[in-house]
Each structure stands twice: as structure tokens, then as C-alpha cells.
């Protein structure tokens, strides 16, 4: 494990990418070992794009790209936050709960038909803070109370849903704030504004991953917490921070969901947990931690969203779509993790 960790650190630290001492195997084997860029996931995405593009000419039109960008924006933001948690070997199952809570919070704080607040941009910041707060509860429970993240975040998921339901009170608040609504309804350069929000989050995530101690230590902690601890890294502090980052991302996603649906609703978070985790894993970020990255997760989410979109365009019967989607996910994961399978075979 140790040499692995070292070489991986080497790559993360070096902009050069694949190192020369890895020349064993063919070109694909070498290329697929580059960990900075999610080559296998990108290959899977390219394959999906080609297949759907050939099967239906609308898939590659500008209009459909807009639709894909719009549908990917929220899960991409969620996946960026989730990436840091999973890189450290933890998991955050609370996304749907946090999105539900912050969707309600943001809807009630901007101009709406239930309350008289009109905090505008402050509502966004408060929602992100609420998300970060729920993330902090999870992070501190994991690091200070030593409860597995799997259990803690089921708890914070319920807390989020509970907050949302109290605020819901039987009737969804409909947003009347034109500024917030324009995020989902207006475009820049032909692309929905929500997609630019997601892009900004991705760039910020990449910067954090590569340029900050938090981002680089995430790999070390996920690769081997004991080694990280022996090296003097304050593991607990960084792990807590990862949950706060994930919570903040979910908080922002909650605001985006409010903007997109035009209302605050408990159901606004539905379906995002599977999409986010599947995206992160398909992208090549290991659930055991230490490998992957923000870019990987983004590509993974794009794969998931493209499959759903492409199947409707191609006209696959809704009765078999679920199975087709499952089969494609299995194939994509196999392609993405092929390299590891090879590695395991060698090791055994």
C-alpha cells in the first residue's frame, strides 16, 4: 500500500501526470493510469455521446446541450462537495435532507407568497451556512464522537427533512423573487445560468483540490489515515472540514433547486443521493478513499445525466429504461475500474 500511496502523492503533486517509471503495459494501460484526469470515465462518456449521437441526431444539438447543462448543474454541485468526503474514505448520505432544508430556507427568505422577507443574496448565503452547519454536526459527530459517517449522515439526513417539514407547513412557498428565478430561467452565452454556478463551484473545487493543504491532505487521509496521523496531519480537523464543505455545497444546491422548481419543497432533494454517489463512483473516485477527484465526479455525473436524457431521445420504452440504465451503470463502472481489476489480478 505504501508505495502506491507515494506514487499517487507524486502524481497529485506533479502537474506532469503519469510518471515515466510506469511504462509497463500498452498505451491504454499507461494512459489509464493517469489519475489527474479521469481517462476511463471520459472514455465512457465519449462512448455514450457517440452512441446516442448516432442513434438520435437531436442528442448533440445546442438545445439538448442546454438541457443537459441545466439537468447536471445541481448534481454536479452536490458531487463536488461529496468528492472531498469520499476522498477521505467517509460518506455523506445527507444530501437529500440538506437540499430539502435549504430549499425551504431559501424559498422563505426571498420574496415569496408565504413570508414577507426579501433578503435576496443574503438568503443564498444563509442557506449555504445552514447546509454547512448541518455538515458541521455530521463532521463533529464523526471525528469527536467517533460514530461512522454512514450512520451519522443518515441522522443528519432526517434532521434536514425534519427542518424542511416544519418550515413546509402543508403548503409550498412559491418564489416571487425575479433575481433568484432568473438563475434557472435566463441564460448566458446560450447556457442556463445555473450551469455557470455549477462551473464556478467546479473550478473552486479544483482549486481547493490542487492548491490547498485541505485538498492535498484529503488524498493522504483517504489513502491511509494512520500514516497521515503519524505524519502529524490533524486528521480530525480536515475530516470535519470535508463534511462542512459537503454541507455547504448541498446548501447551495438547495438554493439552486428552489430556483429551478420555483418553490420551496421537501421533495426538492428527491433522487439526488443516488445520482450524486453513482456519479462520484462512476467517475473513478473510490469509496474507500484516496483516489479520484473533483473532475472525476463531474464526468461521472455527466455520464448519469446523459444516459437518462439519451434514453428518452432514443425512445427506449419507459418499462425497460430502468434496467437499461442499471446495465449502463454497471458497464461504466466496469470500464472505469478496469485498471484496478488488473492491478488486483497482478497482486494476487
Amino acid at each position: 500500500m505504501a508505495p502506491d500511496l507515494l506514487s499517487q502523492e507524486h502524481e497529485v503533486g506533479n502537474a506532469a501526470g503519469a510518471s515515466e517509471d510506469r511504462s509497463r503495459g500498452g498505451l491504454w494501460a499507461r494512459v489509464s493510469r493517469i489519475e489527474r484526469v479521469p481517462i476511463p470515465a471520459l472514455a465512457a462518456l465519449a462512448l455514450i455521446v457517440i452512441v446516442f449521437g448516432l442513434a438520435n441526431s437531436t442528442f448533440l444539438t445546442l438545445a439538448n446541450m442546454q438541457a443537459l447543462a441545466d439537468q447536471s448543474a445541481i448534481p454536479v454541485v452536490l458531487a463536488v462537495g461529496m468528492t472531498f468526503v469520499i476522498l477521505m474514505g467517509s460518506i455523506d448520505l445527507s444530501v437529500e435532507g440538506v437540499v430539502a432544508a435549504t430549499s425551504m430556507v431559501s424559498a422563505l427568505l426571498v420574496i415569496n407568497d408565504r413570508t414577507h422577507h426579501h433578503l435576496g443574496l443574503w438568503a443564498v448565503l444563509i442557506s449555504v451556512a445552514v447546509g454547512a452547519g448541518i455538515g458541521a454536526v455530521a463532521g463533529l459527530s464523526v471525528t469527536r464522537l467517533r460514530i461512522p459517517s454512514f450512520l451519522v449522515t443518515i441522522g443528519t439526513w432526517q434532521i434536514g427533512i425534519g427542518i424542511a417539514q416544519v418550515l413546509f407547513g402543508g403548503q409550498p412557498p412559491v418564489v416571487r423573487d425575479r433575481e433568484l428565478l432568473s438563475w434557472a430561467l435566463k441564460t448566458w452565452l446560450g447556457m442556463p445560468r445555473l450551469a455557470f454556478v455549477a462551473l464556478a463551484v467546479v473550478l473552486l473545487g479544483l482549486w481547493v483540490q490542487h492548491m490547498t493543504r485541505f485538498g492535498r491532505y484529503a488524498y493522504v487521509i483517504g489513502g491511509g489515515e494512520d500514516i497521515a496521523r503519524l505524519s502529524g496531519i490533524k486528521v480530525a480537523r480536515f475530516r470535519t472540514l470535508a463534511f462542512i464543505v459537503a454541507g455547504a455545497c448541498s446548501g447551495l444546491a438547495g438554493v439552486m433547486a428552489t430556483s429551478r422548481s420555483g418553490q420551496g419543497a421537501v421533495a426538492n432533494g428527491n433522487g439526488y443521493l443516488f445520482l450524486t454517489i453513482a456519479g462520484v463512483v462512476i467517475g473513478g473516485t473510490l469509496l474507500t478513499g484516496g483516489r479520484g477527484g473533483v473532475l472525476h465526479s463531474v464526468v461521472g455525473v455527466l455520464i448519469m445525466v446523459s444516459i437518462t436524457n439519451g434514453m428518452i431521445l432514443v425512445g427506449i420504452s419507459p418499462y425497460v429504461q430502468q434496467s437499461v440504465q442499471g446495465a449502463i451503470v454497471v458497464l461504466a463502472v466496469t470500464a472505469t475500474l478496469w485498471r484496478l481489476r488488473e492491478r488486483l489480478r497482478v497482486v494476487k
Partner: peptide
């Protein structure tokens, strides 16, 4: 065309968006 959106608002929004491009 008919598609399921599983009674869900977000899914319906995505499906409708895709129908509109198709």
C-alpha cells in the same frame, strides 16, 4: 410519447426538457 416521471416534480422537469429538445 409517454414517459414515466415517477410522480416526481424534478424528474418531470427533466423529462419535459428532454421532450422539448426532441
Amino acid at each position: 410519447e409517454a414517459q414515466t416521471a415517477n410522480w416526481d416534480q424534478t424528474q418531470a422537469q427533466n423529462v419535459t426538457q428532454t421532450f422539448l429538445t426532441k
